[in-house]
């Protein structure tokens, strides 16, 4: 089980959270002008990154708020968590324990 640091509440076990998928996918502004292909891209296409992945989590069984996180999908190690609306921090992978 992962230990996740909610930016509002601090470190809590994974069971308190719900995963919210890839982060920073903004709903397109000019909806009426979008082609079906662009809609499909927004709705369905994902980077599915092998490495540092920006993703949303929601502290459902805590404060209830959404936030974003950077996690290395090859180790499941969290690199940073940050509040919704904040810019994605630089992805510096911490050294693994020896």
């Amino acid at each position: 089980m992962l230990l996740i640091e909610c930016p509002y509440c601090g470190e809590r076990p994974e069971l308190e959270f719900v995963y919210g998928g890839e982060a920073h996918i903004a709903r397109p502004a000019a909806e009426a002008e979008l082609t079906p292909g662009q809609w499909a891209g927004f709705l369905y296409a994902r980077t599915n990154t092998r490495g540092v992945h920006a993703e949303r989590w929601r502290h459902t069984r805590g404060c209830g708020r959404f936030f974003n996180a950077l996690r290395d999908t090859t180790t499941d190690q969290f690199i940073a968590t940050y509040k919704t609306g904040e810019a994605r921090p630089p992805a510096v992978v911490p050294q693994k324990d020896p």
């Binding site: 089980m1 992962l2 719900v18 599915n48 992945h53 996690r71 999908t73 090859t74 180790t75 499941d76």
Partner: peptide, 13 residues
């Protein structure tokens, strides 16, 4: 597991 991952292992819960 609930989250995307390439680790080839899952959580115990």
């Amino acid at each position: 597991d609930a989250y995307t991952s390439y680790t080839q292992r899952g959580a115990l819960h």
